[in-house]
Design a protein around this nucleic acid. Sequence first.
DNA 1: GGGGACAGCGCC
DNA 2: AAAAGGCGCTGTCCCC
Length: 571
Amino acid sequence: MLIALARDGPSVRLAELDAGGRPIAEHTVSPDRLPAWVAERERGQPDGLRWVWADTARVYPVLLDAGVRVRRCHDLRLVRAILTDNLHAELAPAAPDGGDPAAPDPFAVAAPTEPGEPDLLDALEELEGTVAGRDEPDLSAVVAEFGRQWRAVETSSRAARLRLLVAAESVGALIAAELRHDGLPWDVGTHDATLTRLLGPRPRFGGRPVVLETLADRIRAALDAPTLNPDSPTELLPALRRAGLEAGSTRQHELEQLDHPVIPALLEYKKLSRLLAANGWAWMDSWVVDGRLRPEYLPGGVVTGRWATRGGGALQLPKQIRGAVRADPGWRLVVADAAQLEPRVLAAMAGDRAMAAAAQGADLYAALVGQGVVAERSQAKVAMLGALYGATSGTSGQLMPRLTRAYPEAIGLVEQAARDGEAYRRVSTWLGRCSPEAPESWRELHRRLVEGEADVADAQRSRRQSRDWGRFTRNFVVQGTAAEWALCWMGALRTALRELGTEGPGPGLGRPHLVYFLHDEVLVHTPAGLAAQVEVAIADAAAQAGRMLFGSRPVEFALDVRTVESYDEAA
DNA sequence: GGGGACAGCGCC
DNA sequence: AAAAGGCGCTGTCCCC
């Protein structure tokens, strides 16, 4: 059962849709009665109900505030973004210099169909001239847009994968709203104590905390620069030069190479200054309310499908202050992160048996040593990151030939993605999120190069741009598929958590619930007595996510799971 | 005084 | 000369 929902002036209009998206019954409800109406339908249709609306971020918080949660939705805004890119890519004509398709199909770029294939063209044209971008589409617009999106999915050459992607992206939107609503438990007392220990007491009238001011004085004395502002690279760099230091920048890793009495104080200053600026008292006042950090999560906010946040930098919580993330009394945090997720995803995508074998254990990097691919675990890590990011030089560049010999399918897959990007062909994640077009100016220059019309300087520039874009597309297919796995993991976990615990004051808060998500890591806040069951649910959900994406391919998605009282206890 | 580029650094 | 992918946020600096 599908129910479409839209605002209509002072009321809310709803339409029950049949399986093909056609309305079969309509209702009008006043906004204050909407949560009860939704809750009743959820109770009456525990299994098959999906809400269709323009934008989860606008609709769902209202329901959450009223204590109502839904199981499934279809987010027209997010799905449209995926489908528009996907259909453009499916319609793109094969590139003239296509190269040979080394990668086996499912990954292959945009599996080109015949240009002009009518059903896809229709779906795309319909999508382009429509109203989903409008602020408040009415019910007929919502129903019509859903019909178009549904048709676009069903007529795609990869309908099964797109269906899963659409569902995963939409459940992500629900989770994002719930994370913000429930909030991450944050102990301002612990946070304040950490800041005070490292920086000194909070200055009462602004200005630098005493520890920073003392360090600044030492830096000024050591450089004989009495008015120097150490926060200013344009002042600091000349001051370093005057002191006889040959620094090209004031970056940490460059300063570390230098030998001078000022360096230790400067490094310490930069570290603490960063803490104060990014996560100091002002940050705490702005973003922590009533003991909860409530960042605004943006599903699909990154081109690869990863989430972003707006405000507070909640995906960059430094390890220094994670001790402030504390479970409520009598509760625990279950912290789980997927170990070496991206290499495992790559092994599954490529169907690379040797690499999948290395991914059978908890430590994939150690397994590379065991298989004799490299001598040490640290080399395995560097080499693997190099393969995923496109390193050509340095240690990881040197190790690439070994990886290529050991795992030809896996390395072949990322190499193919890189070559596609270099030729400005679009690539796709496992489920069908397509990479964006490169900047038009880059593609134009590349066309001139291919046609022999570029001079030497332009040719050089174009080749550099191509390599840059190839590194992006190489990483895109793996990072994006890892993001899809994480969505499926979290979606499956959310479903499982609903079955645990008893109904509390609010449907989310009396029982275990998700409180944080960081690309390949989740935090669940749970009554202490249920923590063991939560750990099992997290592991089950990971296995389920692997099956959803990759069926029976024998790749294990290992987790590190710990039950703690505060986040800094999780290694 | 606001806007935007840049440097720098935190996270994955 | 070569340069590893994706982000958000702060302060500085400079321009309008």
